[in-house]
């Protein structure tokens, strides 16, 4: 929409900006909207973009949640949710597999991903610990393997 309909920025600009936003911490889409808002209207642009991104979805999801709370005693709603939850797990599972796909060319990276999965899902390490311990090693290995 931003690139093709409004022509606010070129496809290259868009993908470069997206790359930067993925590199920075925080939800990517939020970072993207904040930096695009800032680009034309400074802080106000960022706030407007942020509110625009969240307002409607937030209202919808809270209504859904209120509805769920109201009807969750009904067996049919509970059962529907069991199915929905199984489908939603597939969503994140497929995302994980897609992101890991390029690592097939870098076995060390695949090993790092495996260690992180184990540390977080099984050993339940806190995220700050994982980042402090694993990130320096992973970055050093990435730097060394690309040379």
């Amino acid at each position: 929409m931003l690139v093709e309909q409004r022509r606010w920025l070129t496809p290259t600009e868009f993908s470069e900006l997206l790359g930067v936003c993925q590199f920075l911490p925080g939800p990517n889409i939020v970072n993207l909207s904040v930096s695009l808002g800032a680009r034309w209207h400074g802080p106000i642009g960022s706030v407007v973009a942020f509110v625009g991104l969240w307002a409607a979805p937030l209202a919808i999801v809270l209504c859904l949640a209120a509805g769920y709370d109201h009807f969750s005693a009904l067996p049919v709603v509970r059962n529907a949710f069991g199915g929905l939850a199984a489908g939603a797990s597939a969503l994140i599972l497929s995302t994980a597999l897609k992101i890991a796909e390029p690592l097939r060319a870098w076995p060390t990276g695949l090993a790092i991903a495996g260690i992180v999965t184990l540390a977080v899902a099984v050993l339940r390490w806190p995220l700050p610990v994982v980042l402090v311990v694993v990130a320096p090693v992973a970055i050093a290995l990435a730097h060394w393997s690309k040379r």
């Binding site: 890991a100 690592l103 090993a111 790092i112 990130a135 992973a138 290995l141 990435a142």
Partner: peptide, 9 residues
């Protein structure tokens, strides 16, 4: 490149 496997994990 180093953060990618961590994100994936």
């Amino acid at each position: 490149a180093g953060l990618l496997p961590i994100t994936a994990g």
